[in-house]
């Protein structure tokens, strides 16, 4: 299917048509930052945003999610039996997601959707969700997607890619799901030559503004233990306060914890985000903690993203360069600096 175009004035109609058939999630301005939320009115969707503060991973892997419910009533024959908590899996559209965040879902799939194990909630949400991306015309100063094999106009993981060309949007339909979604909307035109040239110009200027900020490839070649024992971790970890900001804002951090919450004679089994920055993350029942030191935890986060994941899945780094951790780390630990250190030629053992 070739690219199609719609003028800015008509675009709200497209959103309206989508809302008639799907639950539509879009960036909504809440306070000073945007956040993906279900929209009730077309004008709530604000596509003039740079990126959301929290990554949209919560749409598929919520911060806290009720998995099961159970009753503890003594005489109830159903007592103690876990029942899946009801959830809404009706079709939905995520509108205006950035290519980096869509790519992140693909990277996370290797954890939640494998041949050996399929996480029912993640998989069902992925199946019933159509991702309509929005290319980044003006990436942030903290972005570095192009250095990790993705880019501001990357289509990986998307069903449709929109490009804001000023007077309107072009749409590149990428999958069957994308076709279905675009199929229920009307008002599209064919893309004129001027628009398509403009789009190409935007892509080039966005990619050029990002440049290549570091060379990730040397890390793949390096010996894991050499990196593990490298002396620079000591300097990298010093400032870290071991909060969960980086992991909670990160689109590719998928780790979770499971808790039972009981109130009165009812209970829930809840899954919630966890962070390798927290001391409890690896705390054993025996009282032993294999990662009791801050250095070990900081190293784990970077090694997982940049060495263990690429080595295990041959899928590139578990980082899409969205720059959220760089922007919001309270003590300015910059993953770009860490990559530069990890890929430097001499990583001398401590």
């Amino acid at each position: 299917m070739s690219d199609i175009y719609i003028s800015r004035g008509k675009f709200p109609e497209i959103i309206g048509q989508l809302m008639a058939r799907y639950r539509v999630y879009a960036p909504v301005l809440k306070g000073e930052y945007h956040e993906f939320a279900k929209i009730e009115k077309t004008e709530e969707a604000d596509l003039g945003y740079q990126n959301t503060r929290l990554s949209p991973k919560g749409l598929f892997h919520p911060h806290a999610e009720r998995m099961f419910e159970y009753s503890l009533v003594k005489d109830d024959p159903q007592a103690g039996i876990l029942k899946e908590a009801p959830k809404d899996f009706s079709p939905r559209v995520v509108l205006g997601i950035r290519p980096c965040d869509a790519k992140a879902f693909q990277l996370d799939d290797v954890n939640f959707d494998t041949t050996a194990y399929q996480d029912p909630w993640w998989v069902r949400r992925r199946q019933t969700t159509t991702l309509i991306g929005l290319a980044c015309n003006e990436p942030c100063g903290t972005c570095f997607c192009t250095s990790l094999g993705t880019g501001p106009f990357d289509t990986a993981g998307l069903d449709v890619l929109l490009v804001d060309t000023g007077e309107g949007y072009t749409a590149q339909v990428l999958t069957q799901k994308g076709k279905d979604v675009v199929g229920i909307t009307s008002g599209w035109e064919s893309v004129s030559r001027t628009v398509s040239e403009k789009m190409e110009g935007l892509r080039k200027s966005a990619e050029d503004s990002l440049g290549r900020q570091f060379d990730f490839d040397p890390i793949k070649q390096k010996d894991m233990l050499e990196l593990f024992n490298a002396s620079f971790w000591d300097e990298v970890q010093f400032a870290c306060i071991n909060c969960g900001t980086c992991t909670f804002l990160c689109p590719t951090c998928w780790c979770f914890d499971i808790q039972d919450e009981v109130w009165g004679d009812k209970g829930d089994r809840i899954r919630l985000w966890d962070s390798c920055m927290f001391p409890l993350f690896t705390f054993h029942g025996s009282g032993h903690n294999p990662r009791s030191q801050k250095l070990q935890r900081v190293r784990q986060r970077f090694m997982h993203k940049l060495k263990y994941y690429p080595d295990k899945y041959h899928n590139g780094a578990a980082c899409v360069g969205c720059g959220r951790c760089v922007k919001f780390c309270p003590v300015n630990i910059d993953i770009r600096e860490v990559v530069r250190r990890m890929s430097a030629t001499c990583v001398c053992p401590a």
Binding site: P62, R66, K87, W263, D268
Partner: peptide, 8 residues
């Protein structure tokens, strides 16, 4: 009062 957690 803590009731059922307000989560997704």
């Amino acid at each position: 009062i803590k009731k059922q957690a307000e989560v997704a």
